[in-house]
Design a protein around this nucleic acid. Structure first.
Lengths: 224, 224
DNA sequence: GTCGACGGGATTGTCGACAATCCCGTCGGC
DNA sequence: GCCGACGGGATTGTCGACAATCCCGTCGAC
């Protein structure tokens, strides 16, 4: 709960508050079932309660928190069965995206993706987990946008957001970050060479770690 | 624009306003690109502008309208390419849902779906397009919920909501309503007998009419 | 001793009013 | 005559304050 605000901008808009809370959830500073109280957040972010409220609405739309009327907001907790379902659907959609992506990717688009990945590399090298998280999102967004179906790309992004609530288990691990980085480079190589089979396989494997980490964390929690 | 409010409840909550506007879009009373002005809506629904604003946020989340900061809200217009992409993704997800649905469906669940379809039948028989629309949504929700993956069911529902903005072209047609009704019954029969191939085929065919109707309406519009 | 009514405190939800922004018709200068 | 600054009007965005709701500890009755 004690957490200095990071608002350097003159006005802490709802989007900034939502992003900060999103990171708190991803990095486990807010654990599942934890309650979010509007006035506390308003004080922490030096924002009005209206903006906090709007931010909570955003997070609810992303599936990261749950709001119960007149009762407040909680960080959403996912059961094992839900994690399995979520991963299965992500696998389906990301595989589909890989299969319909035009290959090999034009050099101009490849360059954009390489630029995004350079940002990710830098963040990982610097050990900046927060920046790595954001850069990772940006790379994935750019990558799946290339599948040619905006609705598919949006659905994939939405599911990835939902998975944030379970990803906290995997993300702080530097080895996982490095592995993610390597996989991104392998994906770029497959895009460049037009290796569709490899690309599809990479996409499937890429989301396995977070699922496994969650299951591990969950079983550790249950046995504790 | 002239449209009596249908609020019989003492308080017109945001959800009710959103539902009414959703229907206006589905039935073509609000056409694509039409502007939605908060104060006008507040007067029409005898609600506060706050509630109207919340309703607009809901509709934006459903992809039915577009909001531009400081500029207001418009009914969202979809291009032909977007319609194709939307339909392709719906096809993928609904086919997947049909393929993983446990068959044959237990009698208790079948009874629930039959009850929902009875409501749809009644609305179609009565020629009540509004009720038919709602009952159709309820049947689809109940149907796809049976696929065993809540995220898949939710994604399907979200895409169906988005399709509302293009469905207006098909919905007022009584023949289409009757056909939809028949297809629902065929789906129920497939669920009962465990005919997975038939079920999958039915799901695919079931969303073809709205796409075709949209393309027809679009070409008619372009040639006008 | 247990159960149900009651109230204080904390928290969320809603309202009216004001401030900020944008569009567009108008005007003055070059 | 055309271009850019300017203001009026319409519309959206934000604030502070108040009302509604809920949780939970307390008390009294059976």
């Amino acid at each position: 709960m004690p957490q200095a605000m990071r608002a350097e901008a003159p006005a802490p808009l709802p989007a900034a508050i939502a992003a900060a809370l999103e990171e708190d959830i991803v990095f486990g500073r807010l654990h599942p079932r934890e309650r979010l109280i509007e006035e506390e957040l308003a004080e922490r972010f030096a924002a009005s309660r209206h903006n906090v409220r709007a931010a909570l609405a955003v997070l609810e739309g992303m599936g990261l928190i749950e709001r119960i009327p007149h009762r407040g907001a909680l960080v959403k907790a996912y059961s094992l069965a839900e994690v399995e379902q979520l991963c299965a659907l992500r696998d389906l959609l990301e595989t589909q995206a890989a299969q319909q992506m035009p290959l090999p990717l034009p050099e101009a688009e490849l360059a954009v993706l390489r630029g995004l990945q350079a940002g990710h590399d830098a963040a990982v090298a610097a050990g900046d987990a927060r920046a790595a998280f954001r850069a990772n999102l940006a790379f994935h967004r750019g990558f799946f946008a290339r599948c040619g179906n905006a609705f598919l790309a949006e659905a994939i992004e939405r599911l990835a957001q939902r998975a944030h609530a379970i990803r906290f288990a995997a993300f702080p691990d530097p080895a996982a970050l490095a592995r993610s980085r390597e996989e991104h480079h392998a994906m770029l190589a497959a895009l460049a060479s037009g290796d569709r089979a490899g690309l599809t396989r990479l996409c499937g494997n890429h989301l396995a770690p977070s699922r496994q980490a969650y299951l591990r964390a969950q079983s550790a929690f249950l046995s504790a």
